[in-house]
Computed example of a mutant assay.
Amino acid sequence: MDFLALAESRYTTKKYNPNEKISEEKINQLSEVLRLSPSSINSQPWKFSIISDEKLKNELASVSFFNEPKIRDASHLVVFSAIDDVEKFEQQIKQNLPEGAVGYFNQFIKPKPEAEIKAWFGHQVYLSLGFFLSACAALGIDSTPMEGIKTEEYDKILNIEGYTTLFAVAIGYRAAEDANQPSVKPKTRLALENVVELV
């Protein structure tokens, strides 16, 4: 399937089949996709938690508002977190990035207020989301990106020091009766001429 066909068929899954699990091989592939995600200056200010343990998944589901049933029934839950410690980030890039990339950060990002620096970290994590959703579609895996979660509770449950939860993605395989799939509910988008301008 070409990429355009994947874009046409991919959708946000509303109901999962709890009896169908993603193979370890595919989870390993998705892990590598996340590692290879793009970010400005290759900054990589992130951490990804791929959760299959049912007890932990259910605990996170309980602090996820209306997304609870999706998380409970999905095969896995992937939590996307951004680094929350500017000093830790600076140490990371000094150890792993070339001088030019570090210089860019020091010149253009570091002088900004801390809230803006952390917002920049978050932007990089959102770049990885698009990459990840596309990879799921390519592997035949259904997905549900979710901001409707209690991020502070996620931080407590996962106990990830130096990072903060931004959003999560339930992944698995759709239930046959999922009413949101394109074969039941055709995908709608704004007209091409309203969103793309060829100059």
Score class of each variant (00 low, 15 high):
residue 4 L to C: 07
residue 5 A to V: 07
residue 6 L to M: 08
residue 8 E to V: 04
residue 9 S to K: 15
residue 10 R to Q: 12
residue 13 T to L: 04
residue 17 N to L: 08
residue 19 N to M: 08
residue 20 E to M: 00
residue 21 K to G: 03
residue 23 S to N: 08
residue 24 E to V: 08
residue 30 L to N: 05
residue 34 L to T: 01
residue 38 P to H: 00
residue 38 P to C: 05
residue 41 I to Y: 10
residue 45 P to L: 01
residue 49 S to A: 08
residue 50 I to E: 04
residue 54 E to Y: 01
residue 55 K to G: 01
residue 60 L to R: 02
residue 63 V to A: 05
residue 69 P to C: 13
residue 71 I to D: 09
residue 74 A to S: 15
residue 77 L to A: 12
residue 79 V to W: 09
residue 81 S to C: 14
residue 83 I to M: 15
residue 84 D to F: 02
residue 89 F to G: 10
residue 90 E to Y: 12
residue 91 Q to P: 06
residue 92 Q to D: 14
residue 98 P to V: 11
residue 99 E to F: 11
residue 99 E to P: 00
residue 99 E to I: 07
residue 105 F to A: 11
residue 108 F to K: 08
residue 114 E to A: 14
residue 117 I to N: 05
residue 119 A to S: 13
residue 120 W to L: 06
residue 122 G to K: 12
residue 126 Y to D: 05
residue 127 L to M: 13
residue 130 G to C: 07
residue 132 F to C: 07
residue 133 L to D: 02
residue 134 S to F: 04
residue 134 S to Y: 01
residue 136 C to N: 13
residue 136 C to K: 01
residue 140 G to V: 00
residue 140 G to T: 08
residue 141 I to P: 04
residue 148 G to R: 03
residue 148 G to D: 10
residue 148 G to H: 07
residue 149 I to G: 09
residue 155 D to T: 10
residue 155 D to A: 06
residue 156 K to M: 08
residue 157 I to K: 08
residue 158 L to H: 04
residue 161 E to N: 10
residue 162 G to Y: 15
residue 162 G to K: 03
residue 164 T to S: 12
residue 168 A to F: 07
residue 173 Y to E: 06
residue 173 Y to W: 09
residue 176 A to P: 00
residue 178 D to N: 09
residue 180 N to V: 01
residue 182 P to S: 11
residue 183 S to M: 04
residue 183 S to L: 09
residue 189 R to G: 08
residue 190 L to W: 03
residue 193 E to P: 00
residue 196 V to E: 09
residue 198 L to N: 06
residue 198 L to I: 13
